[in-house]
Design a protein around this nucleic acid. Sequence first.
DNA 1: ATGATTGATGTAAAGGTTTACACAAACAGA
DNA 2: TCTGTTTGTGTAAACCTTTACATCAATCAT
Lengths: 341, 341
Amino acid sequence: MQHHKLATIEDVAAIAGVSIATVSRAINEPTKVADETRRRVTEAIARTGYTTNAMARSLRMRRSNMILILAPDVGDPNFSNILVGLETEASKRGYGVLIGNTQNDATRETDYLRFISSNQADGLILFTGHLPYGFGSDAGPARLPPMVAVNEPVSNSDLPFVGVDNFEGARIATEHLVSQGHRRIAFIGHSTSKAVNQLREAGYRAALDGAGIALDPRLILDGDGTTESGRQATEHMFVRDVLPTAFFCVNDATALGVIISLNARKYDLPREFSVMGFDDISFASFVTPSLTTMKQPRLKIGEEAMDLLLALLEGKPLKKKEVLLRAELIVRNSVSRVGRN
Amino acid sequence: MQHHKLATIEDVAAIAGVSIATVSRAINEPTKVADETRRRVTEAIARTGYTTNAMARSLRMRRSNMILILAPDVGDPNFSNILVGLETEASKRGYGVLIGNTQNDATRETDYLRFISSNQADGLILFTGHLPYGFGSDAGPARLPPMVAVNEPVSNSDLPFVGVDNFEGARIATEHLVSQGHRRIAFIGHSTSKAVNQLREAGYRAALDGAGIALDPRLILDGDGTTESGRQATEHMFVRDVLPTAFFCVNDATALGVIISLNARKYDLPREFSVMGFDDISFASFVTPSLTTMKQPRLKIGEEAMDLLLALLEGKPLKKKEVLLRAELIVRNSVSRVGRN
DNA sequence: ATGATTGATGTAAAGGTTTACACAAACAGA
DNA sequence: TCTGTTTGTGTAAACCTTTACATCAATCAT
């Protein structure tokens, strides 16, 4: 009862009075068929409402024109904006987009590989920062599908990568603080494991270095990028009583924690302390004070990543193995000139 | 160079010393094959690393086990949380999820239907509030695929619908304000076109009615659900000098506009005015004062919608044509007892 | 006039499954 | 012993394309 019976290429061929091969050619290589024939085929297609069956096509061509996107958290607003870019570019080029929410669960990751191994997807976009479990494995196919990593580069691999230039962004951010007269600038979010954090810290160090400001290691605090870690780091500073005039936070979530902590202590922001974030996530403009931060070009990241993957897929030579996009400084109200009190 | 040559059912059959039919049965209807045979097949599968080719399977079965999700804005955080629910449920049941970002563009909507007509997707989840353009059309297939509407019911149709109970939620919200002693409660977001707004206004009216509070039409203001409209409505109230003690806003975005406007006028919130939202979007807890609002059960909405669609798809009898989920009152700091000044 | 080339089309194979139907063996009931 | 049923398996068709190869007519070069 599902399908009446969709029109097939044979129906079209019969009506147009040609063979199915000709119909196929009229559709896929129009120049290879005579004008008059093409006209008849086009008309027959219109009359039957024919659409080529993608399954049969994929089976024959060994190509699904689908891209699988694997992300640890599809609900993450940061992800979803990149997704728009990915989807837009894919759609423009005639590809469909399949999504898989891995939740960093090995079982789920392996499970999604069925889309690859069963030919349901031609390529892979990875947000996870590592190869899916089950790839390097014994049973798995030796051949890896075309892949592009986004946001998090995949460790020990030379996978093409698209993301924001964290080092440069962090440098710009820190330089902005310096330009406002700050010299005691804390970095909140030191991490020995997260590549993103390390790059941003490196940018911070480079900026201080460039400005001739000596690094005070007591102003560099650990953090895992959560709001809670920002809060804790701030509290820790007050306990030790080693204070900066400005906080550069590894990301907006951390910055929020810092702001919450400072607000709770009744400081007047940004007069008494400046706070700078990174990412420009949606709430950044709604916090009080609204957050000065570095905006990630999320749409662009998505588009570039998909473009790269499709180039890979279509066998075109890659321009680059790595695309780093610039973050943009967004000035709001959480940073002011130092020493206004 | 792409694929070495994946193992097929024939390879497995050869190794196990059975026919391909038996292999297929061993996989899909294990009870129908003898224990010993099944063992041999399983082993052969393990040895070859065989995965069934989904394309061939879909072609034969006329079923792709894919669901297409059509949404006007994939980047909308409200959407992306529902997406998690949709994806989780689909994945649990062995379905994949395909996404289409329509941007309310007729061309794009029509374009995505190719997934349906070409058998690449078996069913449709609609966030758009209307049937995709090209469906009722002449050329299109008379047969509609199984569909479920989410968030926005589809007008003039009896499409199954899953969403939040707006009427009930608005009533609960308003009753909360009443319970805090408010009697002059404004409704911001009256609309003649948006169904959601109308339902929430109806809930507001019902609550007032239930509390024996006479409706003051001057306290009902137009709004399209944007932050700007919330701001404007508030300004308008001050111009006319007809003031409530509490604002019930059609959604959080509107509430944010109201708060911005009141903050700009230097009112002390929530002492002088209470503000209530609806949705509990991510920034709700970050505004100052943090927003008391009604939380949409987004994950649950997604799960229920997918469950409904799959039931439809698998020909099971539907429990209901409409699933309305309850919104939950989230008490934060933007509402206080009236008359504390 | 002849052979070679070009252009347009058709024939048939291949892609990898699922499943209706046929068949054989084993078993049950008489 | 015979008939009818059950159980397990195999054969082959069908799902709908794309495309290598063959065919044939028309055009061209010599």
